[in-house]
Computed example of a mutant assay.
Amino acid sequence: MPGVSRFLGITVVMFYRDHAPPHFHALYGEYEVTVEIESGMVSGRFPRRPLAFLLEWWDYSREDLRANRDRARLGIPVVPIAPWE
C-alpha cells in the first residue's frame, strides 16, 4: 500500500493491483473513503471537514494522481504528492 500523501491527519494511498475505475484511498482515524480520480466520486465515510480538505487536494493534485495510477499499474513506485497546506 504505497503512501501518496499525508496532511491534516489524512493519509492517501494507492494499491498496485486495485480494481477499476482508477481511484485512491484516504484514511482518517477509523474512517476510510475511496475517491475516483476522474470524477471525484466518493465512497465510504469521512468527517465533513477532512473530506472537504481531501477533495480540495484531489482537485489540485488530479494530474499527479493520474500519473501515479499509471505508475502503480506498471508496478513502478509511486511518487509522493505535496500535501495540502
Rank of each mutant, 00 (worst) to 15 (best):
M1W: 07
M1E: 07
P2L: 06
P2I: 02
P2T: 12
V4C: 11
V4F: 09
S5Y: 04
S5T: 09
R6T: 11
R6W: 10
F7N: 03
F7A: 01
G9R: 14
G9D: 13
G9E: 14
T11L: 11
T11G: 12
T11E: 15
V12A: 06
V12W: 01
V12T: 03
V13P: 01
M14D: 04
R17M: 01
R17E: 02
H19M: 05
H19C: 00
H19W: 05
A20I: 00
A20Y: 12
P22Y: 12
H23D: 03
H23S: 09
H25T: 01
A26D: 08
A26T: 01
A26L: 08
A26S: 08
Y28S: 02
G29L: 03
E30A: 04
E30G: 10
E30R: 15
E32L: 09
E32P: 08
V33M: 11
V35W: 06
V35N: 07
V35C: 05
V35F: 01
E36H: 08
I37E: 12
I37F: 09
I37V: 14
E38M: 09
E38P: 04
S39A: 08
G40K: 11
M41E: 13
M41S: 10
S43I: 05
G44I: 05
R45Y: 08
F46D: 01
P47K: 02
P47T: 03
P47Q: 07
R48E: 14
R49V: 11
R49M: 11
A52W: 04
A52V: 13
A52R: 00
F53N: 13
L54S: 10
E56W: 00
E56G: 03
W57Y: 13
W58A: 10
D59C: 10
Y60H: 07
R62V: 02
E63Q: 12
D64C: 01
D64E: 13
L65H: 04
L65Y: 00
N68M: 02
N68S: 01
R69D: 05
D70P: 00
D70Q: 12
D70H: 12
R71A: 00
R73V: 03
L74G: 08
L74N: 14
G75K: 04
G75A: 11
I76T: 13
P77I: 12
V78C: 14
V78E: 13
V79I: 15
V79P: 00
V79G: 06
I81T: 08
A82G: 13
A82W: 07
P83N: 12
W84L: 15
W84G: 12
E85Y: 11
